[in-house]
Design a binder for these strands. Structure first.
Lengths: 315, 315
DNA sequence: TTAATTTATTTGACGCAGTCCAATAAATAT
DNA sequence: ATATTTATTGGACTGCGTCAAATAAATTAA
């Protein structure tokens, strides 16, 4: 079921963009071509060796119409066609140098026009815009959207802690019903970590995809020869990709190199996915206590990893 | 100057939505009307008493073309027109009951179609979608976007602190070059506040517009008869609307009712806008000390307000 | 293998959406 | 009072895009 306001917002947006494309189509980029013709030329310039059928499927045109346009292009010398050797009904289209010239011109004007449109949009506005456009495409048609970018790991930047706190608090509230005391705890841990940060002995990683933060973990000095793994979090969108394990292994590696002998962490039994990762990476449960600090009753657990042992088994 | 990738992303989105509107236009909603005719009927149903000129300006159509369509609608009995008494060249258009019926049908089908499109989009996806659509409209054409919704103030909800920390840390890093120690401080304050929250004596307000958080302030128990105002923050988009003052006044009112005799706060001289608000609402600077806790040197300032006095002057 | 069906493309025929120009009439400026 | 601008309309026409039918190759069924 979809909320009526959602639908009305979408209708309004459709009207808005219909207008936008309408003015775009009118005397298309000051060339003698139609918007449709432009699209076809674009597709042929962007890919190589398209077949007419493919083109048709992707653009959803009438085959007769497409055929006519292709004929026109062929006569104008923009494209060449040769029958597909594997299926002689079909033909492979190729753009000629002359056609590519037009393609470039069209592209240039299109870019120019967009740059004009953006003249009054500041940098954050532009960022918001492309973000929003990506979001719409990804939501409405996951297949055409840009393929999932690789996840990268980078060090802390300002704002990351706030993100982490919000993401973790809302996710665990939604998923496990944890209350605001959990957000408070995360905030305090994150705050203390940054306030007392020791770059030699501590580290924070933020996993990012497409400029969007999707995961985190940090290693804090636990005193003595013990490091503490804290605030491991994965956005729902990247769960099940092995990213959690990669983050934890990152922590193990760093802790070992930093000279710690033990890596310890505190978690709760309800977070089964995380616990699974800890088990897999060699952590052992050392103690457990029942509590209801965050609303629902659960077992707080302390897990530890002997880094010397881990090093051996990894070798 | 606009980044090339930005432009390419926008071009890709335009192609994407051109397709979308293309399939929308094809046999428009299974009615004998064109998409353009549908738009015109929509505009006449949505507003009352439009003039043809207005319609024309808003939809960007050829006047002759519009005239023809209106004639058709008039003959079909969908609309009536009377000359505008104030300008007899112009005519005022009004939709008839019969026309409204068609209008409703079209709306119904349009809604139905969108609901179908959304069948495979989950709730967060839908939220992301409408957010993105609003963002695009607001960015590309601030005037047509929904008028700025009223700002509402509501109590704390889970995730608010994380938001506040990120927003404040990134904004002040950008604007004043404050470093990560500032984010750490904000996180610790926010964390402690929630951890020790006393609903009788403490309060947190989040200012929200259109479901988007745009401001915050909180009152914490400072011990004895002193309340502390903390973490006043306004998103750049709502600065200069008097919202900051409203938030501070909210705090003063609450502190007074809660029985405090003094409201105190700590801030920094570089935050001139905030300081201006404190002055206006009656706070007095009581002490000042130079520090570089957050990178750049500045003056930390303690301001205080005598609540008894404030009450008198307000009365 | 042949016959029947499906698929890729093309052509003929054509409607009608949308454009351009000029005309009319009222309003506004000079 | 005259000239210019603005709102609307009709005539005339272009060509976008559609529908149906034809052709030829590929695929499936018999």
């Amino acid at each position: 079921m979809t909320a009526p306001e959602t639908i009305e917002t979408i209708r309004a947006f459709n009207r808005f963009y219909t207008n936008k494309i309408g003015v775009l189509a009118r005397d298309y980029l000051a060339t003698p071509y139609t918007l449709t013709e432009g699209r076809i030329l674009y597709e042929m310039g962007a890919r190589e060796r398209v077949s007419a059928t493919e083109l048709n499927r992707d653009l959803g045109l009438d085959p007769a119409y497409l055929s006519r346009i292709l004929k026109k292009f062929r006569e104008a010398g923009f494209i060449e066609s040769e029958p597909d050797p594997s299926d002689k009904r079909s033909q492979i289209l190729n753009i000629t140098d002359k056609g590519r010239e037009i393609y470039e011109t069209l592209g240039e004007r299109s870019r120019q026009q967009i740059a004009d449109d953006l003249r009054n949009v500041d940098e954050t506005g532009q960022a918001r815009l492309i973000d929003a456009m990506q979001a719409i495409r990804a939501t409405l048609d996951p297949s055409t959207a840009t393929p999932p970018a690789p996840v990268i790991m980078r060090p802390y930047r300002i704002g990351d802690m706030g993100w982490l706190i919000e993401a973790q608090a809302t996710a665990y509230a939604r998923e496990y019903g944890l209350n605001e005391k959990f957000e408070a705890l995360v905030a305090e841990i994150a705050g203390k970590f940054i306030a007392n940060f020791n770059p030699e002995r501590e580290r924070c990683w933020i996993a990012e995809r497409d400029g969007r933060r999707v995961g985190s973990v940090l290693v804090a000095d636990g005193g003595g020869d013990t490091a503490k793994l804290r605030l491991l979090y994965l956005d729902p969108s990247v769960r099940g990709l092995g990213l959690g394990r990669a983050l934890v292994e990152q922590c193990i590696k760093f802790s070992t190199l930093a000279g710690y002998r033990k890596l310890s962490l505190w978690t709760n039994d309800i977070l089964t996915a995380a616990i699974h990762i800890y088990e897999k990476t060699g952590f052992k449960l050392v103690s457990e206590e029942r509590h209801a600090m965050f609303g629902p009753e659960c077992n707080g657990q302390t897990w530890e990893l002997d880094l010397a042992e881990a090093k051996l088994s990894a070798a």
